[in-house]
């Protein structure tokens, strides 16, 4: 039979010590910074390449209708908007100062973030989708004159089908997963908050 004082003595004489040194933590910080930088670098490169291709098309390919130029401008706007939004949210969640908050403050922060992400993935994404669809439709006018009718119809069906798949399957799944992930974080924190609250009564 042991009393609490003996348990405390046992605790102080315990062997388990962290086997992570200060230098290791610094190394990981540098590594995580460089991996974030690498991710942002490749995102910027791919966005830059996409915009450069569109610009090159604008100046070197002679399109027969003005609608194609408008379509390219809309596309470039969409790419830049989507990249900027993702970047902003990525920074918001990864460098959140709210980590220092008590669980209840952190829950509030996560709930606000969850609502913001939901709005972005539904309302904003729909506007984004509509803009891309308009761009495709405008480009379709050029294609209508350039391609044989059946190729044009086939291409049109493929694009519509792809849009439907993205909207109904991929986007819904993405929203569901992302919301579930944040909801589970909130759930864990609320469980702890409730436990402390019960004991406060």
């Amino acid at each position: 039979m042991k009393g609490f004082d003996q348990i405390q003595q046992l605790w102080h004489g315990q062997a388990p010590e962290p086997n992570v040194s200060f230098e290791n933590v610094l190394k990981r910080i540098k590594a995580s910074r460089s991996s974030l930088a690498k991710k942002l670098f490749w995102q910027s490169i791919s966005m830059g390449v996409a915009v450069a291709i569109l610009l090159w098309m604008c100046f070197s390919v002679e399109f027969s209708t003005w609608t194609t130029y408008l379509a390219i401008a809309i596309m470039m706007g969409c790419i830049c908007y989507y990249f900027a939004s993702q970047l902003r949210d990525y920074h918001a969640i990864s460098n959140s100062g709210n980590l220092l908050s008590k669980p209840q403050d952190y829950i509030l922060y996560l709930k606000t973030f969850q609502q913001k992400r939901y709005r972005f993935n539904t309302r904003n994404y729909t506007v984004y989708e509509v803009c891309i669809a308009i761009a495709f439709a405008l480009y379709g006018i050029e294609m209508y004159f350039a391609l044989p009718l059946w190729t044009f119809i086939g291409l049109g069906i493929f694009v519509v089908f792809w849009f439907v798949i993205c909207h109904v399957v991929f986007m819904k799944q993405f929203i569901r997963n992302e919301q579930a992930r944040i909801a589970e974080m909130i759930g864990n924190l609320e469980r702890i908050k409730d436990q402390f609250a019960e004991n406060e009564e």
């Binding site: 086997n19 933590v25 990981r28 910080i29 460098n95």
Partner: peptide, 22 residues
Amino acid sequence: SDSANDLMQETFIKVWQNLDKF
């Protein structure tokens, strides 16, 4: 113990990232 080491590291990375916000 392994998870504890991982979590300790992760905690201090967050501390470093948010040091100027303290």
